[in-house]
Nucleic acid binder design. Structure first.
Lengths: 149, 149
DNA sequence: TCTAATTGGTTGCAATTGTAACCGTTGATT
DNA sequence: AATCAACGGTTACAATTGCAACCAATTAGA
């Protein structure tokens, strides 16, 4: 006789609910102020924090579909927040990097993010976020391993 | 001088990435087999595990936008997996409950879910999932509290 | 009691998204 | 070298989504 299924302890469900909640919560901090969408912030954040990257790398890093990355990069380029640099050894690849304006925006929103996380940490107690993230890292490792046998 | 911003330890980013990864991973188990979308599975799961609920409750429970719930309920009703029951004391409300066919589908996919989570648990070690979920519960509590002051 | 505000739920419309097919470039096989 | 598969990235198209406006029913307030 199988154990009953408890949705409340089913990890995909729980992760999705929490992610949607926190993501919308933080998006309220930048959406109107910077006219920025979630994929745009994720791309800006990836480039701002890791420096020059290709579109494929941005997608892998933040787990976004490549067409979503492509369109987001086009939007950010149109806004002059990033520029594309060609790779001379492989002309399919485009390196992406933030412009001065992009870096400035990144810096400001990163401040919001720091403040946001600090207030969350204050509400949760020290170490709580680190513990969650350690668990998430394990989960991701297990899933990516399963995906590439 | 503010501490540098580390995207890898920014909780919204980390939660989103992990949630998207695991959600797509599990969706592969039921998408083609049951011709079911993610919102459909979430709604089916909520109703199957909590029993009769209203659309608003489904949305609150799984944190889905109310129009998404509305359309998903319509799809599941069209498939005869749930039926709507009117509430005689408040005729705006519709109670939703699974039909026999809906319960059967729920049971089968819940089996997949149990198996999925068991294999994940095996890869992670016992207690790992519980620890993450305890952390998520705290986060959700803090966020919902912030939202309703 | 009459009106106004609120609530549960639906829908029109525009924006966002994923799928699949594509283009140009590179790598592998021969 | 010639061909073909694979790769990075883009785009046409269809499906999914969210916003805002809406409807009907209920509740609160004057």
């Amino acid at each position: 006789m199988p154990p009953p299924f408890d949705l409340e302890s089913f990890l995909p469900y729980r992760l999705n609910r929490a992610a949607e909640l926190i993501s919308l919560s933080f998006a309220r901090e930048y959406k109107q102020r910077y006219q920025m969408t979630r994929p745009e912030w994720r791309t800006l954040a990836a480039l701002g924090s890791a420096g020059r990257m290709t579109a494929t790398e941005v997608g892998a890093h933040s787990n976004m579909h490549k067409t979503k990355v492509s369109r987001t990069v086009a939007a950010l380029a149109g806004r002059r927040w990033l520029k594309r640099r060609e790779n001379e050894s492989d002309r399919r690849v485009e390196h992406l990097e933030l412009t001065a304006a992009g870096l400035r925006a990144y810096g400001e929103i990163a401040d919001l993010a720091r403040t946001y996380q600090a207030s969350l940490e204050a509400a949760l107690g020290s170490g709580a976020i680190e513990r969650i993230e350690a668990g998430l890292a394990e989960v991701e490792r297990a899933l990516l391993e399963k995906r590439r046998p």
